Computed example of a mutant assay.
Amino acid sequence: MIAPRSEGMRVLVADDEVPARQRLLDLLQADAQVGVVLEAGDGQAAVEIIEREAPDLVFLDVQMPELDGLEVIEAVGAAAMPLTVFVTAYDQHAIHAFEANALDYLLKPFSDERLEASLSRAKTRLDERSIREFGRSVLRMVSTREPADRYLDRLVIKSAGTRFIRVVDIDWIEGAGVYVNLHVAGKEFLYRTALNELADRLDPMRFVRVHRSAIVNIDSIVELQVISHGEFAVVLRDGRRSRVSRTYRPQLERRLGQSL
């Protein structure tokens, strides 16, 4: 469920208890700086909404069906998580919340003032993040491109024998547990490296991440298809399709130099 408002913070409330969820929704919708309020009744729904809607802030119940709060973070990936405020009825969970790099935690039952303090902390952090991102953008504009030899041009695949694969021939790369599958001209090759590690060694002018489990070769994209509500899927020359998640959509837009 999405309650659209004017521009402002995008906030997700993930709690399996309807009364607790509704109280948070009511309090958030009364805040003029909150623009969109989303809700999820279980952990799996929370993961899907985070990946699809990319909220700025999540109020995350620790104990939920399907996936609990910590499992939600694990499923999304800590680096891709929005600012997170854990909500719990048990004080001992506060320690785990801060171990998970949560911005704050709310102990049920909490007062309106306690929620306002948590929201204020989130707004400050978002402002700081915007300033840092602007600074990074300026640095990227004025800095020269890193030397090409920083990036891989061949990958060595070891199975029954040894095969060399030119990086430029890779159509897309798919996360496969702790390793990755390389898709080359309709064939798949298992490469024993984590997706995040490989992403750091690929030329960002050629490869762009479109999902937490997919990296595509920009030259292999033949079409962008609209799914719904501003969501897109890339269609590759081998016929495969990969959804562009809201988290990674800005990276594709920056590479293309235009908004989707």
Rank of each mutant, 00 (worst) to 15 (best):
Q44T: 04
Q44R: 08
A45W: 02
A45D: 05
A46N: 11
V47D: 10
V47T: 15
E48A: 03
E48G: 06
I49K: 07
I50N: 04
E51S: 01
R52K: 10
P55R: 06
L57V: 12
F59I: 00
L60E: 12
L60G: 11
P65H: 07
P65R: 00
E66M: 13
L67K: 10
L67G: 01
D68N: 01
E71D: 00
V72N: 01
V72R: 05
I73H: 08
E74F: 00
A75Y: 00
A75N: 00
V76D: 06
A78I: 12
A79H: 09
A80E: 08
A80L: 08
M81G: 02
P82Q: 06
L83G: 02
V85H: 04
V85E: 09
V87K: 02
A89K: 01
A89N: 05
A89Y: 06
Y90Q: 02
D91P: 01
D91L: 05
D91V: 06
A94T: 11
A94H: 04
I95Y: 14
I95K: 10
A97E: 00
A97P: 05
A100D: 09
N101I: 12
A102D: 07
A102G: 06
Y105T: 11
L107Y: 00
K108N: 06
K108Q: 12
K108W: 02
F110N: 13
D112M: 10
D112A: 15
R114E: 03
A117T: 13
L119M: 04
L119V: 06
S120V: 07
K123Q: 11
L126C: 03
D127A: 15
D127F: 02
D127Y: 10
D127V: 10
E128K: 14
S130L: 07
F134T: 13
G135K: 14
S137Q: 15
S137G: 15
R140P: 14
R140I: 07
M141N: 15
M141G: 14
T144F: 13
R145V: 09
E146H: 01
P147S: 15
P147E: 02
D149Y: 12
R150S: 11
Y151I: 12
D153R: 12
V156C: 00
S159Q: 07
S159M: 04
T162Y: 05
T162W: 04
R163Y: 11
F164P: 05
I165L: 10
I165V: 13
V167Y: 06
V167N: 07
V168D: 12
V168T: 09
I170D: 03
D171Y: 12
D171Q: 09
E174P: 03
G177W: 08
N181G: 11
N181Q: 14
L182D: 04
H183F: 13
H183V: 14
G186M: 13
K187F: 11
